[in-house]
C-alpha cells in the first residue's frame, strides 16, 4: 500500500498498520526518513512538501506492487507526507516484511530509491538565513532511469 497524507506520521503506532499483523513474517525492515536541519551547507528550519496527489498515489502504488513482484517479500507499505514539516518530523516510512531479512532490506531500498526518483512530490526548503527554494535533483532530469547516480 502507498499513501500520501497531510497528517503527522511521526508515531508509527498511530498508523495502526495491518502489515505488522502477520504471524508468518520473520523480518520487518523499517525505513524512516526525517527532516534534517541542514542541506548542502545551509541551515534548514523547515520544509514544504507538495504532491500531485492522484498521480503520486498511483505511481507510488505501482512501485510498491513492483517491489512485491521483484523481491520475495510478504508485504510492503510506504506512507509519505505532504504539507509543512518541521525539523525531526517524519517525511516518509517504508516498511517491508518477509520470511527472511535479506529480501526485506533489498525491497526497502528499492522502494525508497524509486519513490525519490519517480513519484511527483516536490520539496521546498526554508532556511534560517536565506530565501526558500525548491530542491531539485537536476541529475534526475537528465537521467530518468537514475541508474548512474544515487539519491541521499
Amino acid at each position: 500500500m502507498f499513501q500520501i497524507v497531510e497528517k503527522n506520521i511521526n508515531n508509527l503506532s498511530d498508523l495502526k498498520l495491518e502489515i505488522l499483523d502477520n504471524p508468518t513474517v520473520g523480518g520487518i525492515v523499517y525505513f524512516q526518513g526525517v527532516v534534517r536541519n541542514h542541506n548542502e551547507g545551509k541551515d534548514v528550519k523547515s520544509l514544504e512538501y507538495e504532491a500531485y496527489t492522484p498521480m503520486a498515489n498511483k505511481t507510488g502504488q505501482e512501485i510498491v506492487n513492483k517491489a512485491k513482484e521483484k523481491f520475495d517479500i510478504v508485504d510492503a507499505y510506504c506512507i509519505h507526507r505532504k504539507g509543512h514539516l518541521d525539523i525531526n518530523d517524519t517525511a516518509v516510512w517504508v516498511i517491508t516484511t518477509s520470511h527472511h531479512r535479506k529480501e526485506a532490506y533489498e525491497a526497502s531500498q528499492y522502494i525508497i530509491d524509486t519513490v525519490k526518483g519517480e513519484v511527483p512530490i516536490w520539496k521546498k526548503e526554508h532556511y534560517v538565513n536565506e530565501q526558500a527554494q525548491w530542491i531539485a535533483c537536476h541529475r534526475c532530469g537528465e537521467h530518468h532511469d537514475h541508474k548512474d547516480h544515487k539519491h541521499d
Partner: peptide, 10 residues
C-alpha cells in the same frame, strides 16, 4: 497535462 519539475520526495 502536468509538466513535472525534478521530483524530490523522501
Amino acid at each position: 497535462i502536468v509538466f513535472i519539475p525534478p521530483v524530490a520526495g523522501g
